[in-house]
Amino acid sequence: MEGAPIVVHPPLGTGGRRVTARDQILGLAHSDAAVVEFLRRAGLEDAEQLLDDPAWVKWRGGRAHHYEAA
């Protein structure tokens, strides 16, 4: 695996973070619960346990689990 297949992008100026899986946009998350739901819809049933696993999820820009505008 080249890198984490799931990317939580930097917070937007209006708040929220774009979430992608292998360059496919899953949605705009405003909370960890939203990220988990996007991942479940993508077929990852144990999504809660993946959020802090760098092999699965890359948090770009800002702090992990932080969704407010920078």
Rank of each mutant, 00 (worst) to 15 (best):
Q49S: 13
R41S: 08
R63I: 12
H66F: 12
A69D: 13
H65G: 01
T20R: 05
W56S: 02
D32P: 08
P11G: 04
T14S: 15
H66P: 02
P54I: 06
L50P: 01
E2Q: 15
A33H: 13
P10C: 02
T14F: 15
D53P: 04
K58G: 07
P54R: 05
V36C: 04
D32N: 14
A70Q: 13
M1R: 14
V57N: 06
P5T: 00
D52V: 08
E48C: 03
Q24S: 10
A42V: 06
V57E: 00
A29C: 06
A33K: 08
D46V: 01
L51H: 00
D46N: 14
E48V: 06
G61D: 01
L12S: 00
A33G: 09
A21G: 09
Y67C: 02
A69Y: 03
I25H: 14
K58R: 15
H30A: 12
A33S: 10
V7L: 05
V19I: 07
A70L: 12
R63K: 15
A55H: 12
A34F: 05
E68H: 13
E48L: 03
A33N: 06
A34K: 02
R40W: 11
R60L: 12
H65P: 10
Q24P: 06
E45R: 13
L50T: 09
R60D: 13
G43Y: 00
A33W: 07
R22G: 00
R17N: 09
G13N: 15
P11S: 10
H30F: 14
V7S: 08
D53S: 04
R63M: 12
R41L: 13
H30V: 13
G16A: 08
V57G: 07
P5W: 08
Q49C: 00
D23Y: 01
V57I: 12
L39R: 02
P5M: 05
G13L: 15
R41G: 14
A55R: 12
V35F: 00
G62Q: 00
L28V: 09
Q49E: 15
R22Q: 09
G62M: 03
V7I: 15
V57T: 01
R22I: 08
V8P: 06
A64F: 05
V35P: 01
V35M: 06
P11D: 04
L51K: 04
V8A: 00
E37A: 14
Y67A: 03
H9G: 11
K58Q: 15
E48N: 05
V35N: 04
V7H: 10
L28A: 01
A64P: 04
R40C: 09
R17L: 01
E68R: 14
L39V: 03
V19A: 06
L50D: 11
S31P: 11
L28H: 10
H65S: 01
Y67T: 00
L12M: 11
A42K: 07
D32V: 07
L26M: 03
A70E: 13
A47Q: 03
A47W: 05
D53N: 10
G43K: 02
D32S: 10
H30Q: 13
A21F: 11
A4Q: 11
E2L: 15
T20A: 09
F38H: 04
D23R: 11
V35Q: 03
E68V: 10
A33E: 12
L28G: 07
H9Q: 10
A70T: 12
E2N: 14
T14L: 15
G13F: 13
L51T: 02
S31H: 10
V36Y: 06
G16E: 10
D46L: 02
L44E: 07
L39C: 00
A42F: 09
S31C: 03
